[in-house]
Design a binder for these strands. Structure first.
Length: 527
RNA sequence: GGGCGGAUGGCGAAGUGGAAACGCUGCGGUCUGCAAAACCGCCAUUCACCGGUUCGAAUCCGGUUCCGCCCUCCA
């Protein structure tokens, strides 16, 4: 049984969809006038993980995420850059997808845009006016909050509370101060659409009501977003949608907590935000995901560089175990079961059950991840201690391991595939070169190779069977070669010509020709 | 002012009535030419503070202090 914390009821409730096994899920997407920052990335990753988990548990999820591509900020940006508003929106939507992909966020089933739903929005506004929930004031249309009795139920405040705390100047034309715009008339130079009330564009809140109900029906199972959307955005969505359809709008409201910097909310207005694109320069999507999911989604999450460093080391532990396991699967393995095999198998089943229990409890990814480390420990211990290795048990381990990291969205196979073959081959040949040096007890050279590789982001580990390599980062061919050339220079300086020549031959076998002359050495590729 | 949430080891973070998970860091050991990885072991008698309920409280109740968020565009 999956339990979710519902902002509306302020408690955990059993998740029951309207039409099992279907689940309709709508998540508020970004306003596309800039690259997304880490604060924007949290709901992306959180709700992507929730979606993955619901699918894992057998639900047929329809996942909808909108783009707000009509908005004041986009218009302003367009003015600044002397472009059309839709050009700005299109550009950043495209950039959004690049970041999302890098974070292993799966594309939604539908990505509706406001600009493509203007007729439906106008129809909805008309209906609200007809039903007496909205009124027109010189080209603008406002929603009459007093016409909707349940207003304030999501954010837990009464209309009086809202008035008491009003900090903003009220538009004189509104009947009540907390009424909000459904349609805004266009000022000169602004993009507009024709409507019964004149040229203008939709207000912010109406888009989500119209688009979510269009694709998911008048009652959504899950509506998600950041906690800052609770009021007024989601409160207004409820008012509009329920006034329009007469049906409950959403069964479960899910809200993620903020990312903070020095305990302060990361936001564009405070200027303390970090662009996802920049972070991904230094850390992989796997690292960012592990960081974002290592705290429960409703809790605040403080950011600084050391947090990503820590996540990176934690990910290393997972990756090491994964590679160890893959390596073991590459060997023959036995088929009969020893007590150690049975113990591991039992442990794996327990860990999987615990992982599911954690996720069932309002998507407790922090606890769930601890069970991934449980698998890591169990597998590592088995590999270190078992005299024989049972193939079916290793496969079982791989299966459980994969299920778990897939839900969290850590993609280990993809990371492997990124490595280009040329550099890979070059690294392997250096490892072979070092093996020979070690065999001949030429440890200074062997260590020199290891240091070189280490500088290039390649970690070498020696074992009885041979050397294992781990790529921390993908070395650049140019940088790697420069380092190799330098190492060879120092071999020659030490008059270790045999080794230097051997290195030259090794590289030649890789299609890399080294030429020595009076000025120094250079290298080139042959095909 | 109104509404909501939080305070757990050196750091991060689970845990909501009965052995204080997990990760990072640090320390000791095994393995190793050395290193790394891995394995084994150690590191909170204590969960902001005070009082109460209970056989039993980090967990429930009351109070205090501190912190964050929302009430304005925001994920």
């Amino acid at each position: 049984m999956i339990k979710v914390y519902n902002t509306l009821s302020r408690k955990k409730e059993e998740l029951r969809s309207i039409n099992p096994p279907k689940i309709g899920m709508y998540v508020c997407g970004p306003t596309t006038y800039n690259y997304i920052h880490l604060g924007n990335a949290r709901p992306l990753v959180v709700f992507d993980t929730i979606r993955r988990y619901l699918i894992y548990r057998g639900f047929e999820v329809t996942y909808v995420q909108n783009f707000t591509d009509v908005d004041d900020k986009i218009i302003n940006r367009a003015h600044e850059e002397n472009k059309e508003a839709h050009e700005i929106a299109d550009f950043y939507i495209n950039e959004y997808f690049k970041d999302a992909r890098a974070l292993h966020v799966r594309e939604a089933d539908l990505h509706p845009r406001v600009s493509e739903h203007i007729p439906e929005i106008i129809e909805a506004i008309k209906a609200l006016i007809d039903k007496g929930h909205a009124y027109v004031r010189d080209g603008d249309v406002f929603f009459a909050v007093s016409s909707f009795p349940g207003y304030g139920k999501l954010s837990g405040r009464s209309p009086e509370d809202i008035l008491a705390g009003a900090r903003v100047e009220v538009d004189e034309r509104k009947e009540e101060p907390h009424d909000f715009a459904l349609w805004k008339s266009a000022k000169p130079g602004e993009p507009y659409w024709e409507s019964p009330w004149g040229k203008g564009r939709p207000g912010w809140h109406i888009e989500c009501s119209v688009m979510s109900m269009k694709y998911l029906g008048s009652t959504l199972d899950i509506h998600g977003g950041g906690a800052d959307l609770v009021f007024p955005h989601h409160e207004n969505e409820i008012a509009q949608s329920e006034a329009y359809s007469g049906q409950p709008f959403v069964r479960y409201w899910l809200h993620n907590g903020f990312i903070t910097v020095n305990k302060e909310k990361m936001s564009k207005s405070l200027g303390n935000f970090f662009i996802v694109r920049d972070i991904l320069q230094k850390y992989s999507g796997n690292v960012v995901r592990l960081y974002l999911l290592s705290t429960h989604y409703r809790s605040p999450l403080d950011f600084d560089d050391s947090k990503l460093e820590e996540a990176e080391r934690a990910l290393e532990r997972i990756k090491n175990s994964w590679h160890l396991l893959q390596e073991a699967l590459g060997e023959p393995g036995s088929t009969d079961l020893t007590p150690k095999d049975e113990e591991l198998s039992r442990e794996l089943d327990t860990l999987r059950a615990e992982f599911i229990m954690a996720m069932d409890d309002d998507f407790n990814t922090a606890l769930a991840i601890s069970h991934i480390f449980g698998v890591v420990r169990a597998v590592n211990r088995y590999l270190a201690e078992a005299k024989t290795r049972s193939r079916p048990v290793l496969e079982h381990a791989m299966q459980v391991f994969r299920e778990m990291i897939d839900i969290i969205g850590i993609a280990l196979d993809a990371e492997e595939a990124q490595s280009s073959s040329k550099v890979r081959d070059l690294v392997s040949s250096l490892v072979e070169f070092r093996r020979q040096a070690r065999q001949e007890k030429d440890y200074p050279t062997a260590d020199m190779v290891r240091d070189l590789l280490h500088r290039q982001g390649v970690i070498l580990e020696d074992s009885k069977e041979g050397s294992r390599i781990r790529l921390e980062t993908e070395p650049e061919l140019e940088g790697l070669m420069a380092d190799i050339m330098q190492m060879r220079q120092s071999l020659r300086k030490d008059k270790n010509f045999a080794r230097a020549d051997q290195l030259r031959e090794t590289l030649a076998a890789q299609g890399i020709i080294i030429e020595d002359n009076r000025e120094g050495s250079r290298w080139r590729l042959v095909d």
